[in-house]
Every structure is written in C-alpha cells, then in structure tokens.
Amino acid sequence: MTDVQMTDVPALAPDEAQQKLKFYQKGTFTVGNRLISEGERSVQASQARSNALTSGHRACQGCGEALGARYAIDAAMRASGNDLIAVNATGCLEVFTTPYPETSWQLPWLHSLFGNAAAVATGVAAAMRVKGKKTRVIAQGGDGGTTDIGFQCLSGMFERNDDVLYICYDNEGYMNTGVQRSSATPPAARTATTPALGPEPGNVFGTGKFVPKIAVAHNIPYVATATVADLHDLERKVVKAMAIHGARYIQINVPCPLGWGAPSCDTIKLARFAVECGLYPIFEAEHGRVTHARKIRKQIPVREYLKLQKRYAHLFRGGVDDPRVARIQAICDAHIAEYGLLGDDEEV
C-alpha cells in the first residue's frame, strides 16, 4: 500500500498473482508438495516409489551418488512400468551396493567390468529386441567408468544408436580407489594424483573433457546434464529419456563428501552451488542440438562454491584468494555465456 500505482489494482488480483498449479510459493523446489495431486508430484515424493536402490548399502554418509542413482533409477522404473534392467560399471556405486552376500538393488542388475557397461547394456538391449520384449535398459557408472576407461564402449554405443540410456554419476574423480584424478576432475581440484603441490597445485587447467558435449557430437537423440540439487529437472529428464528409443546420455553431478572434502550434510548444497555459479551447466540436447538450458536461479560467485571444499583449500591459503579462483570464475562465465544460463526459464 506504499505504492501509489497500486491504486489501479482491480478488486481481483492480476493473473500473474494467481498461483499456477505447477508448484506453489511454498515448497516450489522441494521433493514433494502436499498441495498438488499425487500424479503431479515427483517420484521421490511417493510412498510407492520403487527404492530401486534400497537401504543397507555401504555408501559413505551423505553420498551424492547413492542419491542420484535412486533418483534416476526410481524415475526410470516408474517410466518403464518397472520393466527395466540396469547394467553397472565397476566403481563406488557397484562396490557399495553389491558386496556379497547382500545387494541393495531391487531390479535386475548386472555388473561386468569397469570399462564395458555401455557395451554390456547394448547386449542386453539386443537380447530384449530379439526376444521381442519391451524391457528397457539402463547402463550406469561413475565418471571414471564413463569418461575414461569406458569411453570407447560408450562412444560405440552412441554411434550405433543402441537403445540404451547411459547415466553417468559424475563425482569428478576416482573416489572408490581413493580419490584420484579422472578426465572429469575440474581444474585446480586436489586429488591423490593431482596433489596441491608445486607451481600448479591441483588438477591442471586446460585438461579434461566434458562428455555431454561429446555425446551431443554423436547426434544421439537425447543428451542431458542434471544435478541431485534439482530433483524435478532430473526426473523430468529421465522420464523424457525413457520415452525415447536409441542412445541417450544423462550425466548427473553427484557431490562426494569424501573426495571433495566437505561435510556430509552439504551434499545437495554443493550440487546446488555448482549449478548456481555456472561451473556445472545443466542443459539438454536433442539430435546434436542444445535445446534447453536450466537457468541459474540465484547466481553466486564460484568462490562460494569452492570455499566449501577442502579439495580447493589451497586456493584460499593465508586468507588470500589464489589467482586461479578468477580463472575458474572465467570458466563459469564462459559456461553462462555459452549455454545462456542467466535469464528467465522458458516453460519446459
């Protein structure tokens, strides 16, 4: 009532003031919302979610990968009517879910090797096709099993357009073996093989690869990045991917409290910050073309993200910011420009 212009407001609130039933002002970004119908809620909000990755697994406290895997597979289970097979690369996810004599998986699941998940999934999909079954196939692995050792099989699966959804849980390093560098490790990050020593401490700038872009270059029907910090976006992408046949790739950013040197309670916060600073662009592409970018909601300087993690502690020694912080900010800025991460989100 402090604004004189408000006198023009009619008795009814203007349209934009009336809530859209998408999500409400309260809990717009939460997992569920008691105020909307069951069907509109996320899979994770449902008491009937499949918990494809169930309790009792041996992931570390606050494991982002355990979370990301349940998010993705539960969504895929719902999308496929539970007619789903998963193939798993060697890595944390495999080790913490299936140590004899217990498994945490509740769907048919196969682990073969570190570097062949994509190819094994191709074989499973081929079997389903030849058997005339509608069963869908997912391959999953960490960034090491995907961007490094599994990359050849992945690329082969892509170029053949095999009917497999490959999900990479990207925690930016070889965490299972004790936090070594992978080609997905970001610049400056300290790992056991890129120690914070010497004139260029941590991982070297200008190295590494961003597999989503390479996936896009294969012209496959669907590529997306996602984050455990945005469940709705993640589930939407999995559901969308499941509706498509052919090779599909989703890379999910999953913070690793152990490898990143952060408190276990900060897992989702870290994922959120990685997106909100622009370091981890969240986008989707179809048939070789980027079609959507998830906008940054509350932009933060990358510094705030880096400061939360011990793997970047060497950038803030002595209370002074290392010049590399500005270099990483420049990477964020480049992502923001490249993918158009600022501005209003269009309807998806």
Binding site: A13, A17, Q18, Q19, Y24, Q25, K26, G27, T30, V31, G32, N33, R34, L35, R41, S42, Q44, A45, N51, L53, T54, S55, H57, A59, Q61, G62, C63, G64, A66, L67, R70, L231, T267, I268
Partner: peptide, 27 residues
C-alpha cells in the same frame, strides 16, 4: 490462497517430502 501458500511454515513440518527424498539411505 496464494497468500496463505506463501507461508514458509517456519519450524514446523509442512510435508514437503524433502527429508524423504534427499536421504541417500532411504532412512
């Protein structure tokens, strides 16, 4: 209704399912 739904429900569970969703251990 819009205005009521702006309430943050400070300090009291409003059944947003976040805890249920974000638990890596389904606990």
């Amino acid at each position: 209704l819009y205005e009521a739904r702006r309430c943050l429900s400070c300090g009291n569970c409003f059944e947003c399912d976040n805890c249920y969703g974000v638990c890596p251990d389904n606990a």
